[in-house]
Design a protein around this nucleic acid. Structure first.
Length: 256
DNA sequence: GAATCGTGGTG
DNA sequence: TCACCAAGATT
């Protein structure tokens, strides 16, 4: 849930999920569509599908438990390098570099003297994070929490509060006069009129309906028919939407 | 490596 | 108002 989504927005949905599905096997026992519906408006609904897939994999391959092993974590759907490291370090005390957007920004400023990190994670950043990580696993985990929190609360993207930063006296970026970002352009994602928005509209409609919806009724919610067809096709191949019978759609696995 | 994938708060 | 950005992963 936290992948690309602010903590404050995740918290209420997360609490609701854990109350409803306390264990992986509880989530694995329901249809994937239930997960997509309970995902609400967190965005990137494929994550709901993958989280459900995680619950199934944990139930089938790990006796319903989360494995304390980076390789096994990484093999779960939707779990990449960051998530495997975060779960490994914070849940199990495994020594792993946890490099999220906050950590990348703190390192970019304090060590590399840059206002912001590159658009995507580089090998050099991973090498740096590993080099900075304390040797003792338990201390390494606390280190990662500390750097993440520093980035989230003090060394923020828009307006860092350097007067409140414990690293200010050692920060390369501050020492060099806090130069502006000079890297490659950071492109903002288009939204209005995009397939992304169209997909969002389709999922929102299906999420709010207890029953299957006809393709025709669904198409009423989007002005461009070709784009609607393309977006729906994508959702079907993603497994986010299911055709219960020709022309009738619903979230996956819901028997209505 | 680049493109794709949601949504809402905020300066 | 609107561009920016948020505990990334996958293809």
């Amino acid at each position: 849930m936290l992948q690309q989504t602010p903590v404050a927005r995740v918290l209420p949905v997360w609490a609701e999920w854990l109350a409803r599905w306390p264990e992986p096997r509880d989530l694995a026992a329901v249809a994937p569509g239930e997960a997509v519906r309970a995902w609400g408006r967190l965005g990137y609904p494929r994550r709901a599908l993958r989280l459900h897939g995680c619950a199934v994999a944990l139930t089938e391959r790990h006796d319903g438990a989360v494995p304390a092993d980076l390789g096994a974590l990484r093999a779960l759907p939707g779990v990449g390098q960051y998530t495997a490291a975060a779960v490994g370090a914070f849940a199990f005390g495994i020594r792993a570099a946890v490099v999220d957007t906050n950590v990348r920004r703190v390192h970019a400023r304090a060590v590399s003297g840059l206002a912001l990190p590159a658009p995507s994670l580089t090998a050099a950043e991973l090498t740096l994070a590993e080099a900075l990580l304390p040797e003792d696993p338990a201390i390494a985990a606390r280190w990662s929490v500390a750097v993440m929190e520093l980035g989230a609360l003090v060394c923020t993207a828009r307006s860092p509060d350097c007067s409140r930063c414990p690293l200010a006296a050692h920060c390369t970026w501050v020492a060099t006069g806090s130069p502006a970002y000079a890297g490659p352009p950071r492109r903002t994602q288009a939204w209005h009129g995009t397939d992304r928005q169209c997909r969002g509209v389709i999922i929102a409609e299906l999420r709010s309906s207890a029953r299957p919806i006809s393709v025709g009724d669904l198409a009423e919610h989007w002005p461009d028919n070709d784009q609607f067809a393309r977006s729906l096709s994508g959702l079907l191949s993603d497994g986010l939407v299911e055709q219960v019978e020709p022309g009738w759609l619903q979230l996956p696995g819901l028997t209505d």
